[in-house]
């Protein structure tokens, strides 16, 4: 295996602190109460939110809050080798950590006895699909008009050729030494997802989280823009003029 970083430039031409090209769009599915789409590198992920709605089966409803349900799923054609459609253990775990990354942002007590379903479909996968899915899902929740304390934005960092780098691509994820996805509520500075695979010193760990937060900051600006685009067609000023 050749080197993944040469003179500070990664195999896909990025610097170590640079995100892959990305695109966010809000309101992409007619039937859903809220929806969003994200492209990040080769990732193409579509997210739909249904709810708050009546809980079925009823005995699973909670008297003082809503229940959040998440399904992260990869389409069979999303990977190099076909992925059988049944949920894998990996997908079940990721569904759980995504739910737990989003839930801190939602005012669950506002919707007692209801359910909110979030479906995250990976149409094409690349490194960092769980993070991209979280970033899109929080937009879909906002699009559904669900009360939230903050958006949630996520970004992975990792160690490649001994260097901490932002936003791992597929090859960097597979060949690199460590991978650490991080999600944050950017205005509250609360970290809602943290996973780590691979060896990091304490210094690298700290540096990694700082780097991830800087990436999240950039994606957060894009999230805001995507919501503006959807609801104010590009900016508050234009909205005011129209009125």
């Amino acid at each position: 295996m050749g080197k993944l970083i040469n003179d500070g430039i990664r195999v896909d031409g990025r610097r170590v602190d640079e995100l892959r090209p990305f695109r966010l769009e809000v309101g992409v599915l007619k039937n859903a109460d809220g929806s969003a789409y994200i492209e990040l590198g080769k990732n193409k992920i579509i997210v739909a939110v249904y709810g708050p709605k009546e809980m079925h089966p009823k005995h699973l409803a909670l008297p003082d809050r809503c229940v959040l349900r998440c399904r992260y799923h990869m389409s069979p054609f999303s990977t190099d080798v076909r992925k059988p459609p049944a949920p894998t253990r990996r997908e079940i775990e990721i569904s759980k950590v995504i739910r737990e990354a989003l839930e801190p942002a939602i005012l669950v007590e506002e919707y007692p006895r209801t359910a909110i379903d979030i479906f995250l479909e990976v149409l094409q996968s690349d490194g960092g699909s769980r993070c991209a899915a979280i970033t899109a899902a929080s937009l879909a929740l906002a699009d559904a008009g669900i009360s939230m304390y903050d958006l949630v934005v996520a970004c992975a960092v990792g160690k490649v050729d001994g260097t901490m780098v932002l936003d791992l691509s597929d090859i960097e994820d597979k060949e690199g030494e460590a991978d650490m996805p991080v999600a944050v509520m950017p205005n509250l500075n609360i970290i809602t997802l943290l996973q780590l695979d691979g060896i990091l010193t304490h210094e690298e760990f700290k540096q990694g989280i700082d780097l991830a937060l800087s990436g999240c900051r950039k994606l957060y600006e894009a999230q805001r823009k995507a919501l503006m685009e959807r609801y104010f067609k590009g900016g508050l000023n234009q909205q005011e003029e129209a009125e």
Binding site: L68, V97, R99, E100, E103, P104, M180, M185, L188, N189, I190, I191, T192, L193, L194, Q195, L196, D197, G198, I199, L200, T201, H202, F205, K206, I209, L213
Partner: peptide
Amino acid sequence: VDEGHLCAGQKGLAGGLTYEQIMFAAE
């Protein structure tokens, strides 16, 4: 691992953690 480096991590449940809480946990 033995030399004190971190090798794996997982945050769980529907609450968040501050930056300081995470650094405290790491130490």
